[in-house]
């Protein structure tokens, strides 16, 4: 069964239709990349999954459970959404680390706050915090930042900051990890270290949705590619399908232009 099913998501900003009946699904352990020109709606689609935008219409299911249905007010309330968005982790283009916290504190803060709400926290506070700390160190180690746990964001390079951001998202153990152009704010020489981490996660069969302009990377790492054009899904299939045998003339032109510029 698909872990993520997105059904006919529509998003309007006033009279502007940004997403038009977008549907796709994802199996557990798969990586889906969303590509397309700027303004095609791919970032908006990702933000809909995290409820940073509310879809105007459509249904989102995770593991068969409806977590959002625009037509059902019971799924659109603030506290419901807060709980249900935890199915998704999010890595932003501009990292959005918390500047006043160290790398480790960035990674552990939300978990600590979450644990505080659980019954029995007070009695086992010390062990719980200790365990979260160890987990945080392990996650930072897994993105190659063992030596940087006590550094503040401004003391880290862009690539290191983005890896902290990935660790921070992983720490919440989301079912699906989302990336919004994770390397677009980085200097070219720093994109490699971030892509390496994402590649490693794909190797471990982490379920991921990635919005990216790195076509070559998308092709290597993805099980599925979704091509968006003006809010419509115009291609949807394996990397071979989309890159070798695009069904639309527009996709072919887009890819040709992209790979020509890269040469």
């Amino acid at each position: 069964m698909a872990i993520l099913e997105v059904e006919k998501i529509r998003k309007d900003f006033g009279s502007l239709e940004v997403l038009r009946d977008v549907s796709f699904s994802l199996e557990k352990g798969e990586t889906l990349s969303m590509i397309g020109a700027s303004g095609s709606g791919k970032t908006t689609l990702l933000r809909c999954l995290n409820f940073l935008e509310r879809p105007t219409a459509g249904v989102i299911r995770v593991g068969g459970e409806v977590i959002f249905d625009a037509a059902d007010p019971a799924t659109t309330g603030e506290s419901e959404i807060r709980r249900r968005r935890m199915h998704f982790g999010m890595v932003f283009q501009s990292f959005n680390l918390f500047p006043q916290y160290t790398a480790l504190q960035n990674v552990t803060l939300a978990r600590e706050l979450k644990e505080k709400e659980q019954p029995g926290y007070k009695e086992h506070k010390k062990e719980i915090l200790h365990q979260i700390r160890e987990e945080g160190e392990a996650v930072l180690d897994s993105v190659g930042l063992k030596e940087k746990v006590d550094y503040y964001p401004h003391q880290l390079s862009g690539g290191q900051q983005q890896r902290v951001a990935i660790a921070r998202a992983l720490m919440m153990k989301p079912d699906i990890l989302c990336f919004d152009e994770p390397t677009s704010a980085l200097d070219p020489e720093l994109t490699g270290e971030v892509l390496k981490v994402i590649r490693k996660l794909a190797g471990q069969r982490t379920t991921m949705v990635i919005v990216t302009h790195e076509m070559q990377f998308a092709r290597e790492v993805s099980d599925k590619i979704l091509f968006l054009d003006s809010g419509l899904v115009t291609e949807y299939g394996t990397p071979e399908d989309v890159f070798e045998r695009p069904t639309q003339e527009r996709t072919r032109q887009f890819l040709e232009r992209y790979f020509e510029d890269k040469r």
Binding site: R85, M86, M90, N96, F98, L109, L113, A169, M172
Partner: peptide, 21 residues
């Protein structure tokens, strides 16, 4: 920046946690 609020939100924080923490 708006991104600070969004980062807190996607980590499951409540509005008051985002503000105070």
């Amino acid at each position: 920046p708006k991104g600070q609020y969004e980062a807190g939100q996607v980590l499951g924080m409540t509005k008051s946690q985002v503000f105070f923490k």
